[in-house]
Design a binder for these strands. Structure first.
Length: 589
DNA sequence: GCCGTTTTCGGCCCGACTGTTTTCAGTCG
């Protein structure tokens, strides 16, 4: 964290610099780190962090909002002072307060606070007493045995820091949700079998459906005397026991995934689940509301004075604060509490409502499934339809179909549809959107398809305006239905291409087109915050697995998690419709 | 530094675990 921010701060730009929200957030976060080491007012530091988080998650770019003349101080958690800082960053690419903070406190110290076991106080002590100003300095001091001689440090703290350093050298890792699921399932089965255990739930960001998880937070209810905590640390995959208490323990598995276990009584299970599910920002907001009502919320329940008034179920906890139940995927303090208070919570789409998949590949363009295998797999999932959308000629990515091969595939689909019961294969294609906005199949072929999915596979570097026009022109074609992976991002690999996504959303809505939520773990495109923006713009989405092989079909669940995090309801997702209604929607007339 | 059915000042979520403490600070979630 904070690294990209420091880069842009050193490289001033003229005029409105193209500073991303992520860079602005990183600069505020770095400022918070440095001020914290310097011992500044902790509430000011929290204000910086809250603002940074809001900006990083915002689907609107700060540059655009300023260009529109929006008053940034009207945004939640952003007042006059931080609004001025954001403006300065956008105008000049730098932040004076950050540069001054770096003069007082070496900037590498900010990174040290990210080492497990090291917070601002210890980093400051290391700097003041041992003049440690970098990871390398710290390693040398550890080796020389000088750290343990400091007041407040000891042999155990020294070892904790050494372990923390190894982790940070290995890079900050988050585990993909689909990978964490397997680990969680095995651990859950193990814990459920321990005597005295009555309930086990994986909470945390896993339960909130985030695409990656930093750790697993497991909550257990059990009868008195259950040996669940000792069984937990004895679990065969445990590599290291970090802490071990009477109600909570933390281990790191051999896979390096951290797991926290928290044990509570049945009467507190709902309150503990609410607390342990988070997010932190949601909990802080909830507890703050409680405080205004003269109540106290903790993981044991909701209390008025010493009397517990709720806690057995989450529903009870929210009800005690005058709120309806809030689904875990919404708990990010992105407006869900206000919506709950106003009776405006969405009824989130569920996996059971999905009637088909609108983006799948066969062995004809890089996939592994035959047409028949694809149909069987879809039927197994109780789908009513599945679209065959292989790449077309231009796709440099995967041996695309030319017109002749596509026509043969269409004929094969028609024969198969005559033969198969309980599933309909849709004739489709994933066509390339060329740089001038045309599609790479002739009109008469496009006309013969049930569904046309369009995507950008090359020319990622076009300027924002041209890229936006390119897509809008593609959607002008009366056969165009769904814009696949709309921002083109590849997580950890490729940034989204520069695009005015709001214009694309409005353009799609006005033309009767749709945007995709591509459920491939590396894409998850649209993101949750863009899903929310799409819903607010009135454009509907298709949630698609973009499957290449059988196992990919289950990625629909990942897509639905993301859709729920984006506040989508059944009516926002077109593949909740039966084929009859969907077919009408796809014929733009 | 932000915020407001305790409103322009005075609050700001709450608790567990560890280590080096002889009563609690630091860190974490």
């Amino acid at each position: 964290m904070g690294k990209s921010g420091s880069r842009s701060a050193r490289r001033p730009r003229a005029g409105r610099a193209s500073v991303s929200n992520g860079e602005i957030a990183a600069m505020l976060d770095e400022l918070a780190d440095l001020e914290e080491i310097a011992g500044a007012n902790p509430f000011r530091i929290r204000a910086y962090r809250n603002a940074a988080r809001f900006i990083a998650e915002s689907s609107r770019s700060m540059i655009d909002m300023l260009a529109e003349g929006r008053d940034l101080s009207s945004l939640p958690g952003i007042g006059k002072a931080i609004a001025a800082k954001i403006e300065a960053i956008v105008e000049t690419g730098r932040l004076r307060q950050l540069e001054e903070a770096k003069k007082r406190t070496p900037e590498a110290l900010a990174r040290l606070t990210h080492v497990r076991g090291l917070g601002p106080k210890r980093v400051k002590a290391l700097y003041d007493e041992l003049h440690i100003r970098s990871v390398a300095d710290l390693k040398r001091a550890l080796k020389a045995g000088r750290v343990r001689e400091l007041e407040g440090f000891g042999a155990k703290t020294e070892r904790l820091i050494e372990e923390g350093l190894r982790d940070i050298t290995a890079g900050e890792r988050r585990t993909p949700l689909m990978v964490a699921r397997r680990t969680a399932a095995e651990l859950l089965a193990y814990l459920e079998a321990v005597e005295g255990v009555t309930q086990v739930t994986v909470a945390g960001s896993y339960r909130r459906g985030r695409s990656t998880v930093g750790d697993l937070d497991i909550l257990v209810a059990c009868r008195d005397g259950s040996p669940v905590l000792s069984r937990f640390v004895e679990y065969a995959d445990v590599g290291q026991v970090v802490s071990r208490g009477t109600t909570r323990s933390t281990v790191i598995l051999r896979s390096k995934l951290q797991v926290d276990l928290r044990v509570v009584a049945e009467a507190s299970y709902g309150a503990a689940l609410q607390y342990f599910t988070g997010s932190k920002a949601h909990n802080v907001a909830i507890r703050s509301i409680a405080a205004h009502e003269g109540l106290k919320v903790n993981e044991y329940g909701v209390f008025r004075g010493s009397e517990r008034i709720a806690g057995r179920t989450e529903k009870e906890v929210y009800a005690s604060l005058g709120l309806p139940y809030i689904e875990p995927e919404l708990r990010e303090n992105r407006g869900e509490i206000e919506a709950a208070a106003g009776g405006r919570l969405p009824r989130l789409v569920t996996i059971a409502q999905i009637r088909g998949d609108l983006h799948c590949h066969t062995s004809a363009s890089g996939g592994q499934m035959s047409l028949r295998a694809l149909a069987m797999e879809a039927r197994k999932r109780d789908y009513e339809y599945v679209a065959v959308t292989d790449h077309t000629t231009r796709a440099a990515v995967a041996h695309g179909l030319d017109v002749r091969r596509l026509e043969r595939q269409i004929a094969a689909i028609e024969r198969l549809n005559d033969e198969l019961e309980g599933i309909v294969l849709l004739k489709g294609a994933e066509v390339d959107i060329l740089e001038d906005g045309s599609l790479d199949l002739p009109d008469d072929v496009l006309e013969s398809l049930d569904i046309v999915v369009g995507a950008i596979h090359e020319g990622f570097a076009l300027a924002r305006r041209r890229q936006t026009e390119r897509i809008l022109r593609a959607m002008d074609h009366r056969c165009f239905n769904i814009l696949a992976h709309p921002t083109g991002r590849l997580l950890g690999e490729r940034e989204p291409y520069d695009l005015d996504l709001e214009r694309v959303m409005e353009g799609a809505r006005d033309r009767g087109c749709f945007l995709e939520l591509n459920a491939q773990p590396a894409r998850l495109d649209l993101s949750d915050t863009y899903c929310k923006l799409a819903r607010e713009s009135g454009v509907k989405l298709a949630v698609s697995a973009d499957a290449r092989r059988k196992a990919d079909m289950e990625l629909m669940e990942l897509g639905i998690s993301q859709a729920r995090r984006g506040w989508l309801e059944r009516s926002d997702v077109i593949n909740t419709l039966g084929w009859k209604s969907l077919g009408r929607l796809l014929r733009r007339g």
